[in-house]
Design a protein around this nucleic acid. Structure first.
Lengths: 232, 232
DNA sequence: GCGAATATCTATCGAATGATAGTATTTTGC
DNA sequence: GCAAAATACTATCATTCGATAGATATTCGC
């Protein structure tokens, strides 16, 4: 959709050792996540981004090579967040599947654990409200900058989920049918980051108890899907 | 997010009887759907919108009161499309639930029919590619203009689905748990309109056979969920 | 502490955007 | 066909955007 800025190389070469500098960059990225999430890429003006971060306008140019560089940094920050949230569950899945064939109950347990983490990620805490909205945007706008985020989601959510579903239905993890069903399973959770879902529930935000309610529903339905080795 | 334009009233009062006028408006709306879907609200410039429609720049101002009016018209066009796609299935659900208590098998049949329509809508034909992308955007940007679309989705998809799920699990359609589970069921389908899902499947577009594959998977899993009156 | 490297700030540029003024053209009622 | 309403077009405005120039202040190696 957008070309990669040529300022990228210049930025990568820039030394970034000073303490004050990292603080400025951090504040800029943190507030950029919220502003981009709220207003979108075009809607978030550099002036607003600078103002909300408490820095001056040229700081964006100086530290990130421009608006797109800041956006990229924000996306990468979120990708790291995704890794943090999903890694424990995803790693456990990988470890369990690497050696031997876990029993069906163990596979289901791993899957529900993974789904719990995924639910918490996509509908999670109020602090992550902006993050998940940016993730949603990332699913639509296909900026080059979003590649990192897509990759994280793939490696930590879709991949492990497909691996488990493949074992449960007796097909390779890469099989088309396996991937489709894994996506459908994850979709149960991902729909809750949409506005429409909140409107339907009349939920303005997601408290901890609400997250747990959704987790329980998704868990229950997923267990039902794979109960008798069936689901068609 | 954005205030309602004051040009709206002036536009509503404008006479629009001439034949050529309706043609211009139609071309403008049709191409605006694609352009807004591709570039977002801010990204789609009025010049590009006019050029792609083969009209001149002030036509947007003249016919729709401005850029936002055109956006609103595009959204309403899609809302009508949603109604067209979902109404047959949704109406059948309403009719069946109005009088008496259909047997479990009938409820499941209605639900899978509704889901088939929903899958076709959100991942549907290449012609509707832009439409569904705009729907996705609508789920994130909460423009006032999107109220019409939200309402259509609620009335034709979420509402009927919740009504069926309520009957299947023996709770009121408005019950929180019912709505959560209905959303999770629909989520199985809605995830496929995201870029991440396509990337995972390595699908650039959705052919008819692919749509049917997804429909079959969603149908199968949904039947499994409600098979034994279970799912927790 | 000195001086070079690094970071911040004020002021401003050129380009692009949405909108409009004013005029020409087309369409419809009669 | 003709007048009047409705629509389309050309040229342009005021604003806002992202980016930069150039000067100043800060930081850290030594």
């Amino acid at each position: 959709m957008r070309a990669i800025s040529t300022a990228e190389a210049a930025l990568a070469a820039r030394p970034r050792a000073y303490a004050r500098s990292t603080d400025t960059r951090h504040r800029l990225v943190e507030s950029a996540i919220e502003t981009f999430a709220e207003l979108g890429y075009e809607g978030a003006t550099t002036r607003l981004l600078a103002e909300r971060a408490g820095v001056n306008l040229p700081a964006i140019q100086y530290h990130f090579g421009g608006k797109e560089g800041l956006y990229r940094a924000a996306i990468e920050h979120i990708a790291a967040y995704v890794e943090t949230c999903m890694a424990p569950a995803a790693d456990r899945v990988r470890a369990a599947l690497k050696c031997g064939k876990p029993p069906r109950a163990a596979l289901l347990s791993l899957l529900t654990t993974l789904l719990d983490a995924f639910v918490a990620l996509v509908i999670g805490d109020a602090k992550g409200e902006s993050r998940k909205r940016l993730i949603s945007r990332a699913e639509i706008d296909n900026f080059a900058a979003l590649a990192a985020l897509h990759e994280s989601m793939m490696r930590q959510a879709i991949g492990p989920c497909a691996a488990l579903v493949g074992r449960l239905i007796g097909k390779p993890a890469e099989d088309r049918k396996t991937v489709i069903r894994a996506l459908a399973i994850l979709g149960q959770a991902s729909i809750f980051c949409h506005q429409g879902a909140r409107r339907a529930l009349d939920w303005q935000d997601f408290s901890d108890t609400r997250v747990r309610e959704v987790q329980a529903a998704v868990r229950g339905q997923t267990r039902a899907v794979f109960r008798a080795g069936a689901g068609r």
